[in-house]
Amino acid sequence: MKILITIHANSVAQRFDLAPEVLIAHHDGYQVVDEPRTIIMSRPSAEELCNLIIKENITTVICGGIEERHYKFLVWKQINVLDSVIGDYLTALHLAGRGKLSAGAILPSLPDKEDPV
């Protein structure tokens, strides 16, 4: 499974269209294989993100809020979109890899130490 997570600091970015960074990882159902890659977006853009997702042959996208049109586009491209996820992106990655993450999940361990700004 090739997973892309929109991230900001330690968390899943709150909005797909404003994500400053993405993490791409392969998960074999038990663990992450190979070193995950992070890509810094030259400018946050839902369209560019959609193109990147297609280009990278991503199978699962984990993100926060996403507009209906981008969601539908990705679903049409047969990509599994787990949206409205709130919480630590590594937790989200591991849960998704094991098939235990669902859209709308509010993950229990929010990063307390993270500077909110």
């Binding site: 900001h8 909005r15 404003l18």
Partner: peptide, 16 residues
């Protein structure tokens, strides 16, 4: 939970 994670505004990430 962080307010901006719920409100999800475009006013700046993490509520600047």
């Amino acid at each position: 939970i962080y307010g901006d994670s719920i409100i999800r505004s475009n006013l700046g990430n993490r509520g600047q």
